[in-house]
Structure formats: C-alpha cells, structure tokens
C-alpha cells in the first residue's frame, strides 16, 4: 500500500443517536485495508470517543482521516465553544457534560484519557469560542 487513503466525514451535531457512524465506517475501511485487530480497535476507540465529544460538546464538526504506509492520522475539527483549560480536561473524571449526556453512558470524563491512552500521539488545540482541533496519530508497525 503506497498510496495515501483519505476519508472525510461531516458529523451531525443534533443527533446523539447517529454519533458513531463515521467511526464505524472508518473502522470498516481500516479492517478492509488489512490492519491488525489491535490497531484497528485502538483507532476505532480514539475516533469514537472524539466523535462523541464533538456531538455532545460542539454541535458536530468534521473528521478527516489519512492513512499512509507509516501512520493513521485522524483530525477532528469543530466550531464549538472550545476547551478553556486543556490540562484540566485531560484529567480522568473531569467533565462539563450535562446530566442528559451522562444518562446516555458518556460524559464521565473518560473520553480524552481514553484517546490519550490509545493514540500514539494526541494533540489538541483550542481557543475559547474558536472551536477545537484534535489530531490523533497511530503508528503502523512495519510488517
């Protein structure tokens, strides 16, 4: 595989129940590309947590995935309210999610820690009022 595979998705912010469709599609593409189960699952966990975050905190956004022979790079961009204190947001258990979101099984302050745990690199840039950009990279071990 020498080509770079690029995928783009628009994530609808109004529909919590549709959240995860992009992650599901990306997971299937990665499987079809022949990556190992562990790598595919790590990528899926990272992207799914990110997608859920975009829907519950930022009214949706875009996901761009590019797969090169060396890396899987996933960029999530939203136009939401931004993260005022990223270090605080990274702490397990810290959450600003509503009770409604918690009732749905998310919003317990575990999403970003899960993303950091399973991505080889996680970069977050955010300004209050300017939205958030999350870049996660997973390294592809040489075959």
């Amino acid at each position: 595989m020498s080509d770079v595979v690029k995928l783009h998705y628009d994530v609808d912010g109004d529909n919590f129940m549709a959240a995860g469709e992009a992650s599901s599609t990306v997971k299937n593409v990665l499987k079809r590309l022949g990556f190992g189960e562990d790598l595919v699952r790590r990528a899926a966990i990272c992207l799914y947590e990110g997608e859920i975050n975009m829907v519950i905190h930022a009214n949706g956004g875009t996901i761009d995935v590019s797969v090169s022979p060396q890396t899987i790079e996933m960029v999530l961009q939203d136009q939401g309210g931004g993260i005022p204190d990223i270090e605080q947001a990274m702490q397990e258990g810290f959450s600003t999610a509503s009770d409604r979101v918690r009732d749905l099984g998310f919003g317990a302050g575990m999403g970003l820690p899960n993303m950091r745990r399973y991505a080889d690199s996680l970069e977050i840039s955010s300004e209050p009022g300017q939205g958030t950009r999350v870049t996660m990279t997973l390294n592809i071990a040489p075959a």
Binding site: M17, S24, I45
Partner: peptide
C-alpha cells in the same frame, strides 16, 4: 460506555443496564 472503551483487549460480552444505540456502537468498536 467509556469504561468499556478503556480496555482495548478483547472482551466479547457486554452486560449493561443502559439502553440506547451507543451501546451497540460501543460493542461494535
């Protein structure tokens, strides 16, 4: 669901009291 997603190793069965579509999405991931 984030507690389920916190462990990357294979877990084949999910028991839950939560009832929504994201339960299936989580199981799928």
């Amino acid at each position: 669901m984030s507690d389920v997603l916190a462990f990357v190793k294979e877990q084949s069965v999910l028991l839950t009291g939560l009832l929504n579509l994201q339960v299936v999405r989580t199981a799928e991931m």
